[in-house]
Design a protein around this nucleic acid. Sequence first.
DNA 1: TTGATATATATCATCTTGATATAAATAATA
DNA 2: TATTATTTATATCAAGATGATATATATCAA
Lengths: 183, 183
Amino acid sequence: MAKLNHTKYAILGLLTTDCRTGYQMKRLIDTSLNHFWKISYGQIYPTLKQLVEDGLANVQETTQDGKPDKKEYFLTEKGEDELLKWLESPLDQIPVPKNEVLLKLFFSRHQDNTKTIHYLRSYHEILEKRLNTYLAIEQVIRTHSLHKADAQYWLFTLDYGKRIVKAEIEWCEETISELKKED
Amino acid sequence: MAKLNHTKYAILGLLTTDCRTGYQMKRLIDTSLNHFWKISYGQIYPTLKQLVEDGLANVQETTQDGKPDKKEYFLTEKGEDELLKWLESPLDQIPVPKNEVLLKLFFSRHQDNTKTIHYLRSYHEILEKRLNTYLAIEQVIRTHSLHKADAQYWLFTLDYGKRIVKAEIEWCEETISELKKED
DNA sequence: TTGATATATATCATCTTGATATAAATAATA
DNA sequence: TATTATTTATATCAAGATGATATATATCAA
């Protein structure tokens, strides 16, 4: 049964930025907002169609010089209202994300601690890279995009990402330390 | 296209605990492991069937006094090997979870900051409740289950949950504070 | 006696995923 | 100059996930 469809609102929101095509939306999400969202083409194009059918967006085909033709989507007033209604809607439950690392860790009494430690070291490396990515993105925003309307809110989301990754890194270090004691 | 199927390994892992039925597995996940995993009946029963077909588990129907009949599943040696292989497999990419709160926050320049602040206060409340839940679970583990083979690893996962929630709470407080400055 | 709850198995409409397909363009390389 | 790689762009689909729903047998509470 259909619960709230986040894809629809994500795309409505994206239409308030300067993304106009499905391809641009996918790129923006993948390169700049992937610390808190992800989307697939399998969601984008059917949802754009549905938004047009529902009168929340309209579409205009554009011929480009030196590039393939494209379909540009624009929010309608009705679409804007729908977005605002969603923004105002109260917070429901927040699902806890599934975490493969913790799933494995929970069952890892079945293997040697040295393997588990090695695994957590890999995780630690991934997290450090991720933190560096977030710091780099933050730098780029502060240097080039602070004037943009979204900048402040974008930084809020990055701050969230940074804090979570830092907590994950600390947890990693602590857990590795505890596992070492048990050998 | 089929990527690694976590459900299968989650269920193989659960069969190393004293869960024997689909219903018990769902209950264990929902009550004790929901800080890092979730599963639906829609996954459990078809996957149990598949494990039996693949020779990774076997099933035995049991009549119970005063309760409905049940199907009990047991790991085979082949299933145990498969679980160990999975535990030893190297860490691939870790997806960043989707986060509805950050999605809304990113677009919330379109609404009054007072609404956003109110929304983040709701989030704050949910997080504080969640932290209390984790602390309570930890207490129960330390008091009643420390002897269990899984206890230490379970506490590791809870420690992760606690640290993440604490980071989220701090982020909330900081972000609310920044938003207040802008009014 | 009735309704709620616990224990138990199971299905399905809807949504998501990410691989894949196709195509028109430019850019890089041999 | 031709070929290959990359960019820009739209689109689909098999496989998996979800969580509501259904059904059934039991005990417990009102």
